[in-house]
Amino acid sequence: MTRVRRWLPGLLLVSPSIILIAVFVYGLLGWNFKLAMTDKHDEIAEIPGNFVGLENFTGIWSEERWGLSVRHAIVFTVVFVGGALVLGWLLAFLMEKGIRAESGFRAVYLFPMAVSFIATGVVWRWLMNSATGEQAVGLNRLFHYAGLDFLQWQWFRDPDWGMAAMAIPAIWQMSGYIMALFLAGFRGVPEELREAARVDGCSEWGVYRHVVLPMLRPVTLSALIILGHISLKVFDLVVAVSGKQIITDVPATFMWTAVYDSHDPAKGATIASYIVLSVAVFVVPYLIWDARKGKRS
């Protein structure tokens, strides 16, 4: 009886969330994978769909649009994750050097986090207007006023580097958050360690290179995971900036048109599965590493 009393209240407390997550996350994930392996290519007709194995998963690679959207997602991810990490680290580094009104700056850099991707997208759509020359508005206009006309370009409508432009609003939004993570990391390095290094004749740069950076590794990894999964799932920002256009197509927007415009649930589920798998590639190793570390300590 006393033993029951010990674990039952705890179980009761967490069971609603366990049930909800089991049904709405893992249950629906499973349902999605099942749908992706059927030939239900018509949304309204009441056909259950026959099991076709991995046919949809292989077939989609012959579609030009899929190749394009995967390429776009990779360019976006590399630029966004790289950009936000470097910029966030730099901001944290400058903060850590002890500038005046630090808390003020911290708030300023963190504020973009409070804005939704949709709002960010609407503003940046205007800033990144692709008109040049006489008709330029937004940033292109600013370049014009500053006499930097050669910097004017098509932004997200550029066929080759459009997705890199699409990453700029995302970097703007997330780098403050990454700064906060790194700043906490910097602060977590005990002053004694740095002192010890300096006493041993280490230069200031050497202190960072050999003492601080290695200790930031867990923080960097967390930041990488957080940015990576946001990036692979990106949908709202792209839709707010350019809508459902091929020129900025990513897997998530392709999934949307497959389901709601082409009325092809199986194809939509296939794309959704690929998105989940790509995020899992990021997240699962991290979870394993995290669990092992937890056991050790």
């Binding site: 649009r65 256009q245 091929i246 020129i247 197509d249 048109t257 415009d261 082409s262 009325h263 092809d264």
Partner: peptide
């Protein structure tokens, strides 16, 4: 129909590039 129209839309989007 919707499927056909979407396929045409995709083709136009790719052609634009």
């Amino acid at each position: 129909n919707d499927q056909w129209r979407q396929a045409i839309t995709d083709a136009v989007g790719l052609f634009q590039q």
